[in-house]
Structures are given as C-alpha cells and as structure tokens.
C-alpha cells in the first residue's frame, strides 16, 4: 500500500494520536469511530496512532507517551447545520468558565482536563477537537445523510492535522482543502 505521507523530519519522534469518540449504535454519535474506520484504510505514518475509543475517552491513558498532538473526532453540537465541521483548539475551550461543578459525568473536556492534570507528559501536547454537528442521535447503526457526507472532509482535515508543516503535499498534486470552521 502506498503511503500518502512523506517521511517525517529527522528528530521528530513524538507521536500524534487520532482518536474517534462516540457510540456507533446511536446514529450520528458514531461519527468519530466512522472516521477512524475511514482513516484505517490508509496506511498511516509510524508517528500516528489511530484509535477508536468508543465512548471511553479515558482509554487514551494507553497512548500517552508524551504525544506531540491529540486530534479528537466527535459529534459536537454547536448550533450549526447537520454535517457542519468545526475545529476547536482545546486550549481555548479549556480556559473558559469551568462549569463542571454542576456538570454531569466525566465529559470529553473534563477527561482531557483530568488527563492533563495527572499526566505531565501532556503538558505541552497540542489538543484539537474536530466536531461534526449531529442531526440524528437515535438508536441506529447508520449516520444521517448529512453527517455521512462530512466523512470525506473530516478525514481530509485529520490528514491536514497530522501532516508535517507547512505542507506535505507532493508538487503538482491537487489538494482540496477541507471545509470547516476554525475556533
């Protein structure tokens, strides 16, 4: 299988973890794991771990060897149209008002805060959340048409996130940028 990725620069040994979160039995909640399925069809470079963690984001503890970056794919309701993709910088999310005192279970953001507080290896790790606006969160093994339609763009965005900067694309190769909004 031909790798879509060039070799990473020498000395850059830190890992990137791409993790899909969600329950595949609840319709669009399964977008994270479905994108992981799609990524699993591509041969990933050795510095990237691709993980389907289901609903258990805390299972990330098995991969925390001072990662350079964690890219999380999840259904995130942000008030947009179904299938819309938003990219969130964790540092911006985490510095806003802490509402976990009245919160619910251990949420995605809270898991990340917990891991950051317990594992010094994460101190300088960049964390990015890629959120897809869900349409249907009901018992189903299928995604809605809108969210299914976002898979290619989410995959493209993940590949941009894990690619050595500034650009890894081969000369002359056409590359359509992913359609998403940055926050």
């Amino acid at each position: 299988m031909r790798s879509a990725f060039p070799k990473k620069k020498a000395g850059a040994s830190r890992k990137i973890i791409v993790v899909g979160v969600g329950n595949r039995l609840l319709g669009d909640e399964g977008i994270g794991p479905c994108v992981i399925d799609n990524l699993s069809r591509v041969r990933m470079p050795s510095y990237v771990d691709v993980v389907d963690c289901g609903c258990d984001l805390l299972s990330l503890t098995s991969y925390l060897d001072r990662p350079q970056k964690i890219v999380i794919i999840d259904a995130i309701r942000a008030g947009g149209k179904p299938g819309e993709i938003n990219r969130f910088d964790y540092s911006k999310l985490a510095t806003t008002k802490d509402e976990t005192q009245s919160g619910h279970q251990i949420g995605t953001i809270d898991v990340l805060r917990l891991l950051k507080s317990v594992y010094p290896a994460l101190a300088d790790s960049e964390i990015v959340l890629i959120g897809v606006e869900p349409k249907m969160l009901e018992l189903s093994t299928d995604l809605s048409q809108e969210v299914r339609g976002s898979i290619a763009d989410v995959t493209r965005l993940v590949i941009e996130e894990i690619s050595p900067q500034p650009s890894f694309w081969r000369k002359g190769e056409k590359h359509e940028r992913s359609k998403h909004t940055d926050y």
Binding site: E29, D74, I76, A78, N86, L93, G107, I109, L129, P134
Partner: peptide, 8 residues
C-alpha cells in the same frame, strides 16, 4: 445521548 455541546 451524551455529546459535547458548545455555545458559539
């Protein structure tokens, strides 16, 4: 159903 909600 338990997903992240953000208020933009």
């Amino acid at each position: 159903v338990h997903l992240v909600e953000v208020n933009l």
